[in-house]
Design a protein around this nucleic acid. Structure first.
Length: 931
RNA sequence: GGACGCCUAGCUCAGCUGGUUAGAGCACCUCGUUUACACCGAGGGGGUCACAGGUUCGAAUCCUGUGGCGUCCACCA
């Protein structure tokens, strides 16, 4: 660190160190047999995505974990990558082509479109990877994986083929969630329910057998009534017993449809009569199946009505048709009323339009290893942080439904299934190899076959992430990439919003695919579960919200651009800021001032180190023992002992918090130690002590121990500045990095101090220093009350016990400098008339007799007395309470007793102080009430 | 309809297994260019810990209920 600026300028430091890290290859995660492995797979962002605050949070946490593992000497690997993100990417490419070339994907055809999509991805994709680097992420970039890479694709298709062969994948004509905009089926997880304001239409259908009589029915979707094939009532509904088996007239197209009885109908809802539209409602579909009803699909895939709806509706959009149908009902005199109504409607998560339940032919996965997936979490093989998400996870598995894995898209992994040409799809027999071919390579006579046009759900590729990023299922690749060394991975860091989409499915995939193949009939043993799970810990982050509590989103424009924040506050400042407000699994309201605090902290750190350097050359700094050997034990005073003791406490706190994923705790405790204990106190105290040349080396060595350890503890959080300062102060040898150095443990630190410098920690030092700090604070407060500039030297008097006076007199120089005092004088006699404070050491007086505002002083002291009396009263009551002494732990009782004594003494001193302040002013409190 | 989370200073949040007089940062007020740092230092004001009961010697902390906010799950048309 040659020329240090007064202000930390992150920009060049960040660039320089990042390049240097990359060049040295220190992010490479190689297997090392003699070391413990540590592995994280990144939740792959969409390949075309840009960095959001959510990514900042998520990836800072992962980076902290990996960097700490690296410091601890583990073989650490963080695998980065991107997701092809089927629907999202395809729709963006389609939009782009429409705007720029005026063509649709159908104009181009599959192959040309995919070529365009790849081109587009290569051009616009991967931005986020560069952004992650700016954040400081220490991923092993040489292992960057994309879900459409050849090897990865092969894994996805292998999984499909395997699951097909094992009987978990089947083709079926079922009700699925259909997105009329994306024109594809969706899984249940991709549908979000939203309350919608609409109308509940009450209408009447005429009874065929009783002309002139009607049943009354309610519906929110009159546009599908053309698909009605029955009307249903509850079997036990007395009101309608006589109608069961009769018919009603469907008004248009006019047709007699049966009145059936089905227990799904709620008697209490509306009139208790339900119109049954098997093609357009999942529940109706089930009723239809039970009663063998015809299925009349009146909708086109894009949500317009078709011919079956009648000529006047054909081609009309579903929402326009809703109004038109209502109008027509009204014209026919069949509409009773349309009342305002709010109900939940399923929306396509991506396209944000209501989905249509639609009967279609799709591929489904019946999940394997459900029981083991539950056990993996329930029995603690996988730990969730915070724990409560286990319940959500287990609940989902309890109610798990088969997964619709086919998508009517082109961008993705094309389903490895071929159909024999000439075999009518409706007559397709999946059990007959002459009809259907499922394999990785395809049929040997491709000219006779036609491949399934669909691709797989994106999540049906990313669920293999921990496996396929490390070579699975290719034996050679797995060996090369040391899958077995790094698997199960150590921790997964993600948001709880994808617990079903991704986390649960990865667990299932791991259990099914990792290791030796086991038949479905064989339940995995706990040992096998432990080997096969994809990760041991899952840390769920919160969701970042704005100050109004809204989710951050592009459309709302309420998300700051992390790169702007990095430019303004530095990557370390941003990381610090986000981590200091990131409680475990709680949503986070993003407040920019926390990032500012992060920047300020970095600046403080920078300047403390700068000052340390200015204070004098250090000597050997490259190891703790080297620093300790610079210590002269005889020169240590209570401050040094207290500082080391605090450093040990900090170390333990940070380690415990880190292991428990309590990151804000880490940040907070380092902040408090560094800023309050080290800078505000120890460095200030050092300033006067450094005048003594014989003690200088020792004091600076203590400072070096503190700074060195703080840099190490801080490094996972703020990698750039700590690396810079580490080298600037000579802690690291040339060519080495801080990220390969472990922080001292408190025990190793103490051991080295003793063995190298013969120092044993004085247990009472922290308490002594606390008393001195209290003394200084009170003295400063006294001066401040009298508007004395802090640098103006005043004379202080002290009255107290000999031990206390010893404590003060051995530290006089420091105290005088910290307080701004010319002298501190012991007084045996009373110091009447001077303003004072009762400190933990004794009573302190300000020698300012002439300038004292006695009235104000008496008011201040009497307030203090009042407050203290309340405290004394309550603690006396507590101690008198027989239950307290009997039941409370001994040390608590003892603590309360000691404290009471101290407070009583303090009260006596305060009263003396008060009595010494005499005045004739009647407005002034003349006595002190006794509690 | 079920489940989970949250409500602590003006704002954003700590306070984890109950135990001194409930903390931090920002904001606010006063003072301060002392050989690191104004992205700073010193001092200060500000809280009946959402509300109501209960358990306990003792509750911000545990239990029950109420209210408000939020999230997830759920086929009442």
């Amino acid at each position: 660190m040659s020329e240090i600026s007064k202000v930390y300028e992150p920009k060049q430091v960040e660039r320089r160190w990042y390049d240097s890290w990359i060049q040295s290859g220190c992010f490479n995660g190689e297997a090392q047999a003699e070391r413990e492995s540590y592995c994280i797979v990144i939740p792959p962002p969409n390949v075309t995505g840009v960095l959001t605050m959510g990514h900042v949070l998520n990836n800072t946490i992962q980076d902290m974990l990996v960097r700490r593992a690296r410091q601890q000497g583990k073989a650490a690997r963080w695998i980065p990558g991107t997701d092809h993100a089927g629907i999202a990417t395809q729709s963006r490419v389609e939009k782009f082509l429409k705007q720029n070339e005026g063509v649709s994907r159908h104009d181009l055809g599959r192959e040309k479109f995919l070529a365009k999509a790849v081109e587009w991805r290569d051009k616009h994709g991967g931005i986020i990877i560069e952004q992650l680097k700016r954040l400081g992420c220490s991923c092993d970039w040489e292992r960057n994986v994309h879900t459409l890479d050849n090897g990865y694709s092969r894994a996805v298709l292998t999984a499909f083929v395997e699951l097909y062969q094992r009987g978990y994948i089947y083709r079926g004509k079922r009700m699925v969630n259909w997105c009329p905009v994306s024109l594809t089926a969706l899984s249940d997880e991709e549908v979000v329910m939203k309350p919608q304001k609409g109308k509940l239409y009450k209408m009447r259908y005429e009874i065929v057998e009783y002309p002139g009589q009607f049943v009354q029915i309610s519906t929110t979707r009159p546009e599908t009534l053309m698909g009605d094939t029955a009307v249903a009532v509850h079997p036990e509904d007395e009101r309608y017993q006589h109608l069961i088996g009769k018919h009603v007239w469907r008004p248009f197209p006019r047709e007699a449809i049966p009145i059936i009885a089905d227990s799904h109908v709620e008697k209490e809802f509306g009139t208790g009569v339900l119109k049954v539209t098997p093609a357009h409602d999942p529940a109706d579909f089930e009723i239809g199946k039970r009663h063998n009803l015809p299925v009349i699909d009146v909708l086109n895939p894009d949500g317009t009505l078709n011919k079956l709806a009648g000529d006047e509706f054909a081609g009309m959009d579903r929402f326009a048709a809703r109004k038109a149908a209502a109008k027509k009902l009204e014209a026919l005199g069949l509409l009773i009323e349309a009342e305002d109504y709010e109900n939940n409607v399923g929306f396509s998560e991506r396209a944000d339009v209501p989905i249509e339940p639609r009967l279609s032919e799709q591929w489904f996965l019946k999940y394997p290893r459900i029981a083991e997936a539950k056990a993996a979490v329930r029995d603690g093989h996988i730990k969730f942080y915070p724990e409560r998400w286990e319940k959500t996870y287990l609940h989902w598995l309890e109610n798990i439904q088969d997964w619709c894995i086919s998508r009517q898209l082109w961008w993705g992994h094309r389903i490895p299934v071929w159909y024999r040409k000439g075999v009518n799809r409706t007559e397709l027999d999946c059990a007959n190899p002459a009809h259907i071919h499922v394999s990785l390579e395809g049929p040997s006579d491709p000219e006779n076959w036609e491949q399934d046009a669909d691709v797989l759900d994106t999540w049906a590729s990313s669920w293999l992430w921990p496996l396929a990023t490390m070579g699975w299922p290719d034996e050679t690749a797995m060996k090369q990439q040391a899958l077995h060394y790094f698997y199960p991975t150590s921790a997964l860091v993600t948001g709880p919003d994808i617990i079903f989409f991704w986390v649960a499915r990865m667990i299932i995939a791991g259990l099914e695919f990792y290791g030796e193949r086991k038949p479905a009939s064989v339940t995995l043993t706990p040992e096998e579960i432990a080997q096969r799970i994809p990760f041991k810990d899952v840390f769920f982050t919160g969701i970042i919200r704005d100050l109004q509590g809204r989710k951050m989103s592009k459309s709302l424009g309420n998300s700051p651009d992390p790169l702007d924040l990095i430019a303004e506050y530095g990557a370390d400042g941003l990381r610090y800021g986000i981590m200091s407000i990131a409680p475990q699994g709680q949503d986070i309201r993003f407040a920019e001032d926390r990032v500012e605090q992060g920047r300020n902290f970095c600046n403080k750190l920078w300047n403390a180190c700068r000052f340390r350097q200015i204070s004098g050359i250090q000597g050997e700094n490259t190891s703790v023992s080297a620093i300790c050997s610079r210590l002269n034990a005889s020169k240590l005073d209570a401050d040094d002992h207290a500082m080391i003791a605090r450093l040990c406490t900090l170390t333990d706190t940070v380690n415990t918090a880190f292991d428990a994923y309590e990151f804000s705790q880490c940040v907070q405790s380092i902040y408090a130690f560094f800023w309050n204990d080290f800078c505000d106190w120890y460095v200030e105290v050092s300033k006067s002590r450094l005048q003594d040349e014989s003690a200088k080396g020792t004091i600076l060595a203590i400072q070096d121990l503190c700074i060195r350890q703080v840099l190490l503890l801080l490094h996972p959080l703020t990698p750039f500045i700590t690396e810079e300062l580490w080298h600037g102060l000579g802690f690291g040898e040339a060519g080495s990095f801080i990220q390969n150095k472990a922080p001292e443990t408190s025990t190793s630190l103490l051991a080295t101090l003793e063995s190298t410098a013969g120092v044993r920690l004085d247990a009472g030092a922290v308490a002594d220093i606390d008393r001195l700090r209290d003394f200084v604070t009170q003295a400063r407060a006294l001066k401040s009350q009298y508007n004395l500039a802090s640098r103006r030297d005043v004379q202080l008097f002290f009255k107290g016990e000999t031990t206390a006076w010893n404590c003060i007199s051995t530290n006089t120089d420091k105290l005088k400098k910290l307080i701004g005092a010319s002298a501190i004088v012991l007084r045996e006699d009373a110091v009447d008339g001077a303003p004072g404070s009762v400190t933990q050491l004794g009573t302190l007086y300000l020698d300012l007799a002439s300038a004292v505002d006695v009235v104000a002083e008496r008011i201040r002291i009497s307030k203090e007395i009042e407050k203290l009396e309340k405290v004394i009263t309550s603690s006396e009551a507590r101690l008198k309470n027989p239950g307290f002494a009997d039941k409370a732990p001994a040390e608590v009782v003892e603590g309360a007793r000691v404290q009471l004594e101290e407070n009583k003494n303090k009260l006596i001193e305060l009263k003396k102080l008060f009595a010494g302040l005499t005045t004739n002013d009647p407005s002034c409190p003349s006595s002190v009430r006794h509690g």
